[in-house]
Design a protein around this nucleic acid. Structure first.
Lengths: 345, 345
DNA sequence: TTTGTGCCCGATACCGTTGCCGGCAACGCT
DNA sequence: AGCGTTGCCGGCAACGGTATCGGGCACAAA
């Protein structure tokens, strides 16, 4: 049948040895230019494609990167796109697995990818993950790991992330500049590093403006629209209710928005709101929600490039840390003081 | 070094032959239960994992499915999740490539996956694709292809899709029932099957209600928010402007919504709007946009199952066609006549 | 004793490719 | 003439498994 041509077919037709064909197809050195041309011509004609399995088996590397992510929402999907693009440029393919924020799935996927003999991993850990033994075991086998976005000190590896503290800071500072005084924060689970960093930024901004923080205004809740909805309801039911809310994700900001609307409060007059991620949806709702934008695609690209680097340099790079800067996108939900010229759309 | 254990290591330690170990690990027949147990125990202890490359090379199949999609928006990402889940259950892994709606990228990705020796493909074609030679060549090599969501008569293969005609029908009928008379449709590119089917449904509904269609109300535009925005602007500038718009995607519905708001018109009073896909965002904007929901996850699962079937039955299944039903989700944007009981939220 | 018959197991080829090693001819240099 | 060098090429083992074939052995049947 129409089986793909192999190196053997070429060798047989040309009456030369397999080794020569193999050399002609790659090194190109150590082989006469006539025979080389003949080989190249014939391989073209037969539409020869090297069998990746055989190459990988022989060379003990697959040129494949295992990517493990907690989910594929807008932010992470964009990062994955960045990874894919940079990996492709470097001749790598990626296999993506979602852990669905579940520790068990994360372990399962790690196994799956390891079985598929990936050369290494690019990982963003699940929010549920508290133990990192499964990743450490991989590192002990000298399989490189790069972590991105959600990183943790418990896993020592080269990393790429947003400056989350800065993100929390500029969001909060913006609210303060707009004259809001009692600013609440909807944070994520307490063990989640990105949440804590964003909260640190929030606290720093308060400190800079000499406002002392109020623990009643710091809410930890699940990374999730419904929880944010209920948490906001409670915040708004307080006797001294906050006059602004900073949520550490846009999904939570949407939840907060729904609760605010339900209560009949107006943004930005009665209450200010700033989210995080700048997903497209926050520009579509009414009023538009201000949000901290992160360079997702770029983070993905940098992560992949860092991975490739660790593959080729074999010094220890586990202390390399790339940090990208956020940018505040201001919309109606938080803009009480209009700019001199004219109102933003 | 800490290299993973191989079948040879087990054989050596147990003083038996490689073949026996191999048999003990799979067939389990034709091998004494004592030796089998010994092998299993030792392989457990050494944490033996069969090398997939070697197995695949020998057996000439990789248990990997290549999935080619035009993008990874909400709808398709959900379908891919469904594919992944069903594939995993059947012992397959998937490799996903995005073509970014580009014909060139689609061909490139096909090559990439073919190089990686996938056992077959599950495909949703790019909107740019008009020639299917690259897929037909694959079929000639007896590599199975299943198409889903966006299918085309030009490619004969087992398929899974939504009943798009029905979707267009129920959306339009709903608008008619609400008393809208001049219903425009924002359709996609003219060569895109799903767009045409949804439009057929639209036309059928008009016919059923004895309204003759008006070509001025049928707009083909790119599958994209901005184009939909401009197209809607033009529609609204007509002297006899439509009193309702049906868009064949939610992204386009968002664009239409923005144009409607800009013009200062109110939904549902001045104009009705129904989208397609029921992405989360249409429930979050104000007013909520009615939309035709499709069972994305299910479509993905069915596609993967169908693929597995074609792998094991070797009769020709290219005429198998699975069609799933849509469901209309009604929100404020189109609900002029309130239900007797009370208004939906 | 011979023959048949399962049961277990080992030897070996093979999948497609690469890497090492060595061979051989041609050539130039002492 | 003898030597080393260089250019080109082929043989062979190896990567880690699987599949086929056949052989040894014990035991029953002829």
């Amino acid at each position: 049948m129409n089986r793909p041509a192999t190196i053997k077919d070429i060798a047989r037709k040309l009456n030369i040895s397999i080794s020569t064909v193999s050399r002609a197809l790659r090194n190109a050195s150590d082989v006469n230019s006539d025979t080389k041309n003949a080989v190249l011509a014939l391989s073209e004609e037969l539409n020869y494609q090297p069998n990746k399995l055989a190459v990988s088996l022989r060379q003990n590397q697959t040129h494949t990167i295992g990517v493990i992510v907690p989910n594929l929402d807008y932010v992470i999907a964009t990062m994955v796109k960045g990874i894919d693009e940079a990996a492709l440029e470097a001749g790598y393919t990626v296999m993506v697995c979602q852990s669905n924020e579940s520790f068990g799935r994360e372990i399962l996927n790690t196994r799956r990818l390891l079985d598929s003999l990936v050369d290494g991993f690019i990982i963003s850990v699940s929010s549920e993950t508290k133990s990192f033994e499964h990743f450490k075991k991989i590192q002990e086998r000298n399989i490189p790991i790069v972590v991105f976005d959600r990183i943790t000190p418990a896993l020592v590896a080269p990393s790429v992330r947003l400056d989350n503290e800065e993100g929390g800071f500029i969001a909060t500072e913006h609210l303060l500049e707009q004259g809001y005084k009692r600013i609440a924060i909807l944070a994520g689970p307490e063990n989640l590093g990105i949440s804590n960093s964003r909260m640190d930024g929030y606290l720093n901004a308060l400190k800079k403006y000499k406002i002392k923080s109020d623990n009643n205004l710091i809410i930890h809740c699940d990374f999730n629209q419904d929880y944010a909805f209920f948490a906001t309801q409670e915040l708004l039911a307080m006797k001294k209710r906050p006059d602004a809310i900073f949520t550490i994700s846009d999904r939570m900001a949407i939840g907060a928005m729904l609760a605010i609307k339900q209560k009949g409060l107006k943004m930005p007059q009665d209450i200010g709101l700033v989210g995080f991620n700048n997903e497209p949806v926050v520009g579509l709702v009414t009023p538009g929600i201000s949000s901290v934008e992160m360079p997702c695609f770029e983070i993905g690209k940098v992560a992949a490039k860092l991975f490739i680097e660790t593959m080729y340099h074999n010094e220890d790079m586990s202390n390399v840390e790339k940090i990208l800067k956020p940018k505040l996108i201001i919309r109606e939900s938080s803009q009480r003081i209009l700019p001199a010229t004219r109102r933003l759309r």
